[in-house]
């Protein structure tokens, strides 16, 4: 069982704000789903890595890409060709 405090902590880690009045509902649903996930305790076998994979990185050569103004077109806050972000500190 996870508590409301646990859900708040996870929300903090995920940068998802949860309002106080949503917390109880989220926690109840969370526990119902986690209880179902407990089925996985019975699974035998090792984690599969999937089909064989190989490295397909291309050579480090400049290829056509989006022009700067297209990349910035959807940003509302920008300055001198850069995205503007909130301060980190």
């Amino acid at each position: 069982m996870v508590s409301e405090n646990d859900v708040e902590h996870i929300a903090e880690l995920a940068d998802i704000a949860i309002e106080r009045d949503e917390l109880e509902g989220f926690t109840t649903r969370f526990n119902e789903i986690l209880e179902y996930f407990d089925l996985l305790d019975q699974v035998q076998g090792e984690a599969s890595t999937g089909p064989e994979t190989c490295n397909i990185l291309r050579g480090d050569e400049v290829e056509p890409s989006l022009p700067q103004d297209s990349v910035l077109a959807n940003a509302r806050e920008k300055e001198e060709g850069f995205f503007k972000a909130p301060r980190v500190m």
């Binding site: 940068d15 940003a75 503007k84 972000a85 909130p86 301060r87 980190v88």
Partner: peptide
């Protein structure tokens, strides 16, 4: 930041990011 409704750049990263999301 790159698209969608912008975060409040006056607030700290985590505050504005959480609120936006």
């Amino acid at each position: 930041i790159r698209y969608g409704t912008p975060p409040d750049t006056k607030k700290t990263w985590h505050e504005s990011f959480q609120e936006r999301r």
